[in-house]
């Protein structure tokens, strides 16, 4: 029998991990944890037992990239993140829904759309997070927030389940797969190529899990979440904040950030 709360908690962990990796350059602390023996063992355990072939293959690629990474690769990964997500060159990968849904380089067409979803869950893009509401990291954190809310609600928050399904179906899946394809094409490191595949495959199975309960998917997600616990990721909201604000959020950004690269 399905452990409803456990499944949604697992989904929350997974979305948290994906959101963190896509929202900024990897911190040294996270990089060391990712390369740490405990996490690699956990991930290896998951990969060797995962019953879903494509999920297993995608996460195996991420595992391989991490196993091959040396201490010096932290700087290279930061460079690559900045290169593909910040630099306006030919290799740029826009992590914003608007770019894919409107086919324009950088517009705010999807910002109003995502804000409607955020408002329904009584959250908004955190003003402290200096980027747009339709950044993939915010949307993945929204999925995480909803999963967490569903897991914590005594009645299973059916209205939040419905909202999450609608957000996934009507918005997130309308652009995230293409983003993954572009990221895979333009990334040069094994890590970001693997991340593109991991996001796509995880979204695919999460959608399928919502549509048809399947023991193998639930088992895989539970094992994956268990592997991710070794990272001891912060459970605080980062890109989102609770409550409603007039207008749904400031229409600023993304503003240039001061960055120093090694």
């Amino acid at each position: 029998m399905t452990d409803f709360k456990k499944m949604h908690r697992a989904r929350s962990y997974i979305y948290n991990f994906l959101s963190i990796l896509i929202r900024d350059e990897i911190s040294r602390e996270l990089f060391e944890k990712l390369r740490g023996e405990v996490f690699l063992q956990n991930l290896n355990h998951f990969v060797s037992r995962c019953p879903l072939a494509d999920l297993k293959a995608a996460w195996r690629k991420l595992l391989s990239a991490l196993e091959e990474a040396g201490p010096q690769d932290w700087g290279a990964l930061r460079w690559e993140y900045a290169h593909i997500f910040y630099n306006a060159g030919v290799k740029t990968v826009f992590p914003y829904a608007s770019c894919y849904l409107t086919r324009q380089p950088l517009v705010r067409g999807a910002v109003a759309e995502v804000r409607k979803f955020y408002r329904q869950a009584r959250v908004h893009k955190s003003l402290a997070y200096d980027d747009l509401d339709d950044h993939l990291a915010v949307e993945l954190e929204f999925m995480r927030y909803l999963s967490n809310t569903i897991a914590a609600a005594p009645d299973g928050a059916p209205e939040m389940v419905q909202l999450q399904n609608k957000f996934r179906r009507d918005h997130l899946m309308g652009w995230a797969p293409e983003f993954c394809a572009v990221l895979d094409k333009r990334a040069t490191s094994g890590f970001y190529k693997a991340l593109a595949e991991v996001i796509l495959v995880t979204l695919f199975h999460d959608r399928a899990l919502a549509m048809e309960q399947q023991a193998s998917r639930e088992e895989a997600f539970a094992m994956l979440a268990q592997a991710l616990t070794a990272l001891d990721l912060s459970q605080d909201l980062f890109t989102l904040a609770k409550g409603l604000i007039p207008g749904g959020g400031a229409l600023g950004g993304p503003r240039p950030r001061k960055r120093q690269h090694p």
């Binding site: 494509d54 993954c180 394809a181 094409k185 593109a196 495959v201």
Partner: peptide, 9 residues
């Protein structure tokens, strides 16, 4: 039917 990046591209 499957989340394949090459097919998607």
């Amino acid at each position: 039917q499957s989340p394949s990046l090459p097919r998607l591209r």
